[in-house]
Design a protein around this nucleic acid. Structure first.
Length: 418
DNA sequence: TCTGGGGTCCTAGGACCC
DNA sequence: TCTGGGGTCCTAGGACCC
């Protein structure tokens, strides 16, 4: 028996904790650069605002329908997510966090699951202020389907239990195939052409060989889960990431290679930090940049990749490679709207930041020195092992004789101590 | 004229998830 | 004017091995 707890319009709900005056109004949280919609309340959905829809297409609702928009604040959402998950952990014998706003609960041996589901829902709302829906089923796919109904059906009151075959029959007939977890647009279109329109159609479809041939093996697992046969284990092995990417869209297109390089260096720094935190070294680094795909005159993209002879997690080494790749792929006059970095081909290990450029007597250097001294003074002499400042040509590193394994290379990280 | 058989590993690309 | 940022898994096909 599995429950899926899913926060409603999660990013919006987080913002509404601090701006309750917008409750029951259309609210949207926007992506980076206020580009498009990331989360919508039911009232915003009712206006026809779609997931990932560009902001400029629905901005007019602010004036006509009292739409409220927020720029995204991921630090806040992660903090609230942690609180929700901690609460769930305390209430449930076993939990598998699936994403920032959902978690599966193992309800094995639970006497009254629906009562429990309502308790969970009420507690998260009352203690944290986040509304959730709870779906219960014998498999993850059915729990997901139950959760879908819990959120969309008016009379469900936020909890749907699909443990019995009878309820499954009724419910799956009402769920379009596209709504099933693991079925996307492409697959749904093909399935519909075959006459498989609802979740029930798929569950009861008899020609498994044909399904496997057309769609591969995943669809059979989904079909089995719809039948109540578990194919997706409760705990997916908590594996280290196999690749780590960092990328952003620019607010305005970029033509200048220096700007591009600054960004690339920043994203390498971020990605390398993530990589070190899982104890990996990479032996492949890629840099990519794209022009705006929505422009009619889309220009060429930049994609350069390199295999490294010696695996490394050294930020400065990686920056050097990344900047060389950027120069290699850069084309004068091309517009670049999005740029990013990917680290891959991981192996286990750590290495230390050994090569560095000579420090220069810059204002940043003095500022960093002051920050380090400050940290030293308040946190103790061994807080910072090493630190880097600057991003491209002026990148330099300080190596002070601190013994703690904690170290950081990010200027913004350092400033947080202040 | 005739041109093995069985396997592994890697990569690119598609589809999907939030 | 203005269009997100991450990830995973699967498959097909090519390179390569003996």
């Amino acid at each position: 028996m599995i429950a899926l707890v899913d926060c409603n319009a999660f990013f919006c709900s987080c913002e509404l904790i601090f701006a309750p005056e917008y409750k029951n109004k259309p609210v949207v949280v926007l992506s980076n650069n206020d580009g498009c919609a990331l989360a919508r309340t039911d009232e915003a959905k009712a206006l026809g605002i779609k997931m990932a829809q560009p902001y400029f297409e629905f901005k007019h609702f602010e004036k006509t329908h009292g739409l409220k928009t927020f720029s995204s604040n991921f630090a806040l959402y992660i903090n609230i997510s942690d609180r929700v998950m901690n609460l769930l952990e305390k209430m449930s014998p076993d939990i598998a966090v699936y994403s920032v706003d959902e978690a599966f609960l193992d309800l094995k041996g639970m006497p009254n699951v629906e009562k429990f589901a309502y308790e969970v829902k009420d507690k998260i709302l009352n203690h944290i202020g986040i509304p959730v829906g709870v779906g219960i089923g014998p498999t993850k796919v059915l729990a997901k389907a139950a959760n879908f109904l819990a959120k969309t059906s008016k009379k469900a009151k936020g909890v749907v239990n699909l443990m019995s075959r009878k309820h499954q029959d009724v419910a799956l007939e009402r769920i379009e195939i596209l709504e099933i977890w693991g079925i996307g647009r492409a697959t749904a279109a093909k399935l519909k052409a075959m006459g498989i329109k609802t979740a029930k159609d798929l569950r009861d479809y008899s020609n498994e060989k044909l399904l496997q041939k057309i769609f591969g093996k995943t669809i059979l697992q989904i079909k089995n889960e719809l039948m109540g046969i578990q194919c997706f284990p409760f705990h997916k092995a908590e594996a280290a990431k196999k690749e780590i990417m960092c990328s952003r869209t620019f607010a305005k297109s970029v033509y200048d290679i220096e700007v591009l390089k600054e960004s690339v260096a920043t994203y390498v720094t971020d990605a390398a930090e993530k990589m070190r935190s899982q104890g990996s070294l990479c032996s492949e680094i890629s840099v990519f940049a794209r022009s705006n795909p929505h422009n009619e005159l889309e220009q060429g993209s930049l994609y350069e990749s390199e295999r490294l002879r010696n695996p490394t997690a050294n930020t400065l080494k990686l920056i050097k490679h990344a900047l060389a790749l950027t120069e290699k792929g850069y084309q004068l006059g091309h517009e670049y709207k999005k740029v990013g970095v990917k680290l891959g081909q991981f192996s286990q290990g750590t290495d230390y930041q050994v090569d560095f450029l000579s420090p220069q007597d810059t204002p940043e250097e003095h500022e960093l020195m002051a920050v380090l001294d400050h940290i030293n003074y308040y946190e103790g002499d061994q807080t910072i092992k090493s630190a880097a400042c600057g991003t491209t040509d002026n990148a330099w590193r300080m190596n002070r004789n601190f013994k703690s394994p904690r170290y950081t290379t990010s200027w913004n990280e350092l400033k947080k101590f202040n």
